[in-house]
Design a protein around this nucleic acid. Sequence first.
RNA 1: GAGCCGGUAGCUCAGUCGGCAGAGCAACGGACUUUUAAUCCGUGGGUCGCGGGUUCGACUCCCGCCCGGCUCACCA
Length: 509
Amino acid sequence: MVRLSDEKGLEIIAITEEELKPNEEVCLEGRLGRFEGKLSILDARRVESSRETIEELKKEYDLDPNFEEVSVAGRLVSLRSMGKALFGHLQDATGRLQIYLKLDVLGEERFKEFEEFVDTGDLLGVKGRLFRTSTGELTVEVEDFQLLAKSLHPMPEKWHGIKDVEVRYRQRYLDLIANETARKIFVLRSRAISEIRRFLDSRGFLEVETPTLQPVASGANAKPFITYHNYLEQNLYLRIAPELYLKRLIVGGFNRVYELGKNFRNEGVDTTHNPEFTMVEFYTAYWDYRDLIKFTEELLSHVLLSTVGSLKITYQGRELDFTPPYKVYRYFDLLEEKTGKNKDFFLRDEQGLRQLAVELGIPKAQSLTHAKLIDKVFDRLVEDELWGPCFVIDFPKLLSPLAKTHREDPDLVERFELFVAGKELANAYSELNDPVEQRDRFLQQLREKELGDEEAMQMDEDFITALEYGMPPTAGEGIGIDRLVMVLADVDSIREVILFPALRTSHGA
RNA sequence: GAGCCGGUAGCUCAGUCGGCAGAGCAACGGACUUUUAAUCCGUGGGUCGCGGGUUCGACUCCCGCCCGGCUCACCA
């Protein structure tokens, strides 16, 4: 252990390689320095960006030897020793800045301290004047430095970064240090979320928080996680959707509400599913689903323009054009186009439909409920081809227990789903606000559950009671944030847009 | 849960027919005061995912297990 201290009495303790033997206890506390100065590389770069143009700046630097004094801290990600001078790069999430250490600027003692105690991977603070190297790179000529934290592990390879997805997900910090694309994706995600909030806020929506632990897991078709509350002595469920609570708030007079947060579904994990995922759900009194189509186009336009800066993007090599209006297809028109069979076939000829499902090779077609059969056939024949963006509207009532009956057709509900790149990105409807009909729909769901549909929706009596007090005509929508970010970031796995995706705990190996 | 593919140095990857475990980067020592994937000289570094089996001999072949990826099933 080596101890250094500067004139202010701040203390740095560096540990040499030999001391980092496995199983040896290493005290980190004493090695944390306090660094006075601007802590973001952006702060240093601001010196440059305050000029009008780069050309202007270059000219100024060429003419004026009095460069600006800056203080910067960051992770030392590269180091090139020239004997009596050293070059390196400091990095943080915002970028990189070159540093230059000269023996005759730092003095022999400090220069040797740097050579001896500072390694790539360490967190370092430096002070000095900005200048341009002969190749034109903006660089800090270091007059003083401070070791702020030691990395006890070597950094990933500088050229290839970290490719092993298992390491990238389990130790995301390494991914963020080594891979700029990963940093960009999560900055993009953050911006997209904040722009969604900004848009909804600007339209008069109230952001609310409703229970994540719910006595009844309803509002969607999914298997919940179950937990037990010791004091209440009862099971609670992690929410599969906030929907029924948000509608209670509409009953309460909050006419525009939204909630942005996690839902939890106890189901498979794959490239488009994570057991906890982020949704934004919003509800507006006195709107119907047609209002939401226009609103969705406006919302997405805002998000696209304020994040990626264009309504036209490339996703997995194909163009996606979000310029409104999006195409609108009726649910049964799409099915009829594929099968030649009309709505009555799907809704009234269960045997014929089952036969069709068997012919299509849909698993367990013999035992699926009528509602599931329709859903599966649609998924198989239509969904993957909906590159979009496009709206599919007017779903069968059987599949939509919380949506209002269609004003022109009692077999249907006023509902749409937004499809992008073959994936469902949003789901919306005119909300069912008739408590009597809502009770019937829940009872229908319970019958579906008895017929073997594990994901049929649970009855929520308290919600029906709320409806009995009167909920204004309302439209509501949910948008899957993770999938939206996948599209914006042009990645094909949901794990690329979730900082810490669900992985099995590693043990044994 | 099923099928296919993968796991070798800190990182990225080779490893032929079963015959001494390899490279680049990183690390360590040395040279070098404008380098930037610095360069040059030198050195060290391995539970070949884990456990069995076959064999004179296994990173390599066989069996089981762990972890991951893709496809499928379930789902948004």
